[in-house]
């Protein structure tokens, strides 16, 4: 799962092609991706949102696609104490459940879809 960090981001798509923002929105709202457990956002149809992490409503103003990509891939790079999981990591973890061992939380294509969606969130 190689990727190249430039500055504070990953400028190139992990899959080599751009993500799909509509699929990304559905992924952010799916509990299995875990985003919505901690974050809230402009999702009036979703009642149960978290408040452990910043609201996503202006994520596209705050970060470029390159910055969003690295924050999803490995947020602990910016703050080792962060509670945000590293979504594209499959090693250096403790007692990972049998069904999840050796796999990152999100596949490269899912990260690209979510990055594409978050980049559209502008005030």
């Amino acid at each position: 799962m190689p990727y190249r960090i430039v500055g504070d981001g990953i400028p190139e798509s992990l899959t080599g092609s751009p993500g799909d923002a509509a699929r990304g929105r559905a992924l952010v709202l799916a509990r299995s991706t875990t985003c919505i457990l901690c974050h809230s956002g402009p999702f009036p149809e979703t009642r149960f949102q978290g408040d452990l992490a910043p609201d996503l409503r202006d994520a596209g103003n705050r970060w470029s696609a390159s910055q969003l990509r690295l924050r999803l891939v490995d947020a602990s790079r910016f703050n080792p104490q962060t509670i945000m999981p590293s979504y594209y990591r499959n090693d250096d973890l403790v007692r990972v459940g049998r069904n999840f061992a050796g796999k990152p939380i999100l596949a490269a294509a899912e990260i690209e879809d979510i990055v594409a969606f978050l980049a559209t969130l502008r005030d």
Binding site: T34, I83, L93, R95, F100
Partner: peptide
Amino acid sequence: QREGQLNLSCANCHEDNFDKRLAGA
């Protein structure tokens, strides 16, 4: 100790973030 694919410890939630809401709860 942080553990699991999500890499979280008990303390991450129950010491550092009690009173906040996880998926609304």
